[in-house]
Design a protein around this nucleic acid. Sequence first.
DNA 1: CCTCCTTGTGGAATCGATTACATGAGATTG
DNA 2: CAATCTCATGTAATCGATTCCACAAGGAGG
Lengths: 338, 338
Amino acid sequence: MPAIKDVARRAGVSVATVSRVLNDHPSVRADTRERVLAAVADLGYRPNAVARSLRTDQTRTLGLVISDVLNPFFTELARSVEDAARELDYSVVIGNADERPDLQDHHVRTLMDRRIDGLLVSPTDGGSPMMLAAARAGTPMVFVDRWIEGEGLDRVPVIRTDGRTAVRDLVAHLCALGHRRLAIIAGPAATTTGRERVDAFRSALRESGLALSEDLIGQGDFQADSGRRVTARFLDLPHPPDAIFAADNLMALGAMDEIRARGLRVPDDVALAAFDDIPWFVHTDPPISAIAQPTGALGRAAVRALIDLVEGRPAESVTLSARLVTRRSCGEPEGSTP
Amino acid sequence: MPAIKDVARRAGVSVATVSRVLNDHPSVRADTRERVLAAVADLGYRPNAVARSLRTDQTRTLGLVISDVLNPFFTELARSVEDAARELDYSVVIGNADERPDLQDHHVRTLMDRRIDGLLVSPTDGGSPMMLAAARAGTPMVFVDRWIEGEGLDRVPVIRTDGRTAVRDLVAHLCALGHRRLAIIAGPAATTTGRERVDAFRSALRESGLALSEDLIGQGDFQADSGRRVTARFLDLPHPPDAIFAADNLMALGAMDEIRARGLRVPDDVALAAFDDIPWFVHTDPPISAIAQPTGALGRAAVRALIDLVEGRPAESVTLSARLVTRRSCGEPEGSTP
DNA sequence: CCTCCTTGTGGAATCGATTACATGAGATTG
DNA sequence: CAATCTCATGTAATCGATTCCACAAGGAGG
């Protein structure tokens, strides 16, 4: 693989001149530029990004640490982040934490070792040491979707979706369809999205004059299996719920499994709804009502904020809003009487 | 961020000694090692991977260029690749080509610029220039799932799944359930998987004494929309097929959309099956029969082959086999009479 | 006691770029 | 015509590691 000195030799100039041509510095004579460019083309030369990064102390790379690649919500987020970053000539390196704090730490560490310019994180749990250290050391950092609180973290912008309104809409929708005993499969209490969705659900219920009893709050971990387990517990209750709200799409899937395994039907026996809408929800039996986050906008806003930070501008937190998409899993839509 | 010389100063030794401790070179006195390690801990020093890579000419990073992150098959593949690589102390950088040759080229280029040690590719189309150049330049490279042929590409190992047996099983399954007019939604002819699956389907039909007429071969592009379009064409035929086989999961989804939009039912009016099984197929209405690839094994084998190449050992192509998973989308399973 | 080998350490070159500073040729100006 | 300025280019330092080579101290062997 040719290096800059090979180009220099072939063009009959010094490496400095080649570098100037490459970074289109104004003071290079036109014919010299031509010669250098010709040499570059002849040799198929490409600048070594490693060497360049060492010298300039910037990698034009962003790290993105997400909680679970297999969750379509995060896949879509990753995709929109990459698109937005590419637009601004940055690359993205993805680290999949798989909801495991130790893996999250591993990825933050290797990304920092590679001297990425900034870090986009959707934290797995309360406070992974490397992440705290990175934030405190002043690494440009932005939280997406989830966030954590802690010393030195108050200056990290948070780009997220507020689901309160959508959750209120969902509860109203469920009530209108006659459901009264509503249950929730919550995410891990250590995640903000885990707590927040329960809170939103509880207040929405209160506004509708209902209460959320403790036995109708199930503790999940954002994975399908936990959704199944919690649903089993719900259905074993002497007084089982008539509607279940899963705090993410994977747990909704688990819930559906368990309901079906017991020979029950959605929505006739139990209604079902989920946080995070995904294309597949249109095709399930029945199609599942869900609260949709604007993943595209989320990714773009996150990248914009992070790059502002990287390039020394101030950045602010952004809160977008989610919206309810009703399908058949909560009951027949109003207009149609069977 | 502290550098090696800061550690050296604090420990009262030279940078050479610090480096020796870090790479646990044997000839360092025990107490010197202690002092260095203490300095490392005090400063929270982490070696700069960029500098190290420049010097050693290796990044311990693998590039993975896939055709579409939003396709669960590739997401699972990416995940298994990352797991396998991490096991061997390599990182993975993913590039999503989105089935676009220009984007594929962009990613290959930036990965090469970053001097990744090896490249794992699931090529989008016939022959993207950067990829050919990379292969010819001797960059360790391995094809996964799909591959391309061409000058200088004959020494690139291919890690793939052979679907012939599974496709034959599928055709037999469909015939047993009474289907006779079988159609296929093919992938792009430029991809090997696109062509191969049609071939396998055609020979399987022939073995069953059926023919695959040209109007029952639809040209798709592995995206949901194309599946929908092709299905519409099939259903508009004077003599529409009674079973449709989609060459990937996304196109099956599109097919299902179109079938449902016309008020038809799966499998009563048209049977449906797909290549690539995914968790969501269990939950669709009806559950979709599919041909499952062993993604975990595929990812592991690909990483093993690539790292063999990277570390100077010879590597060989691997062909795993797919298996048919029958659900309800082709008709009621044999045992149960409605 | 002198030589030779082993062990632990430091000095300095190196990887491939960028960039401050030096330099020489030619143009401008008093 | 000498002084000064501008422009194009080269020389060399630098980023943070690794690693070859040199060297000093101490032990072994003749």
